[in-house]
Deep mutational scan, measured.
Amino acid sequence: SEIVVAMYDFQATEAHDLRLERGQEYIILEKNDLHWWRARDKYGSEGYIPSNYVTGKK
Rank of each mutant, 00 (worst) to 15 (best):
K42T: 07
V5H: 05
A6K: 01
I28L: 08
S45Y: 12
S51H: 07
E25R: 08
V4K: 03
Y43R: 06
P50F: 05
E46R: 01
K31L: 04
K58Q: 13
L20V: 04
Y8P: 00
T55K: 11
Y8S: 07
E30H: 07
E14S: 15
I28M: 02
I3C: 09
S45W: 08
I28D: 01
I27Q: 10
A12M: 06
G23C: 12
R19S: 15
Q24S: 09
L29G: 00
Q24Y: 07
R38H: 07
H16Q: 12
W37E: 01
S45E: 12
K42H: 07
H16G: 15
D17T: 15
L20G: 01
V54C: 04
K58I: 14
W37I: 04
G23R: 03
E30C: 12
E2T: 09
Y8A: 09
W36F: 08
H35K: 11
F10Y: 14
E21S: 07
E14H: 14
K31P: 02
A6G: 03
M7H: 05
M7Q: 08
A6H: 02
N32R: 11
I3D: 02
R38K: 14
N32L: 13
K31A: 08
S1N: 13
G23A: 04
R19T: 15
D41H: 01
F10K: 08
E21I: 13
E2S: 09
R40K: 10
A39W: 03
A6L: 03
E14G: 15
H35W: 12
K31R: 10
A39H: 01
R40W: 03
G56F: 13
E21T: 10
T13M: 12
K31I: 05
S45M: 14
Y43K: 07
Y53E: 02
V5K: 06
D41Q: 01
D41M: 01
E30G: 06
D17E: 15
A12G: 15
S45C: 15
D33Q: 08
V5E: 06
Q11F: 14
E21F: 09
K57W: 09
L29E: 00
Y43H: 10
P50C: 10
Q11C: 14
Y48S: 05
K31G: 04
Y26S: 00
E30P: 00
D17Q: 15
W37S: 01
E2Y: 13
Y8W: 12
K58D: 14
Y48L: 12
Y43Q: 09
E46C: 06
L18I: 06
K57E: 10
D33H: 09
G56T: 15
A12N: 08
L29S: 02
Y53N: 04
V5N: 03
K58G: 14
K31F: 05
I49N: 01
I49L: 07
Q24E: 15
L18C: 06
V5T: 09
Y26W: 01
V5I: 14
R40V: 09
E14R: 15
E30I: 05
G47M: 00
N52P: 06
G56H: 15
R40Q: 08
W36T: 07
D17I: 15
R40P: 02
Q11V: 14
S45T: 12
E30Y: 07
L18K: 00
S51V: 09
T13Q: 13
T13A: 10
V5C: 12
Y26A: 00
S51K: 08
E25L: 10
T13N: 11
Q11G: 09
D9K: 03
K58E: 13
T55A: 09
R38A: 04
E2Q: 11
H16K: 12
L29C: 05
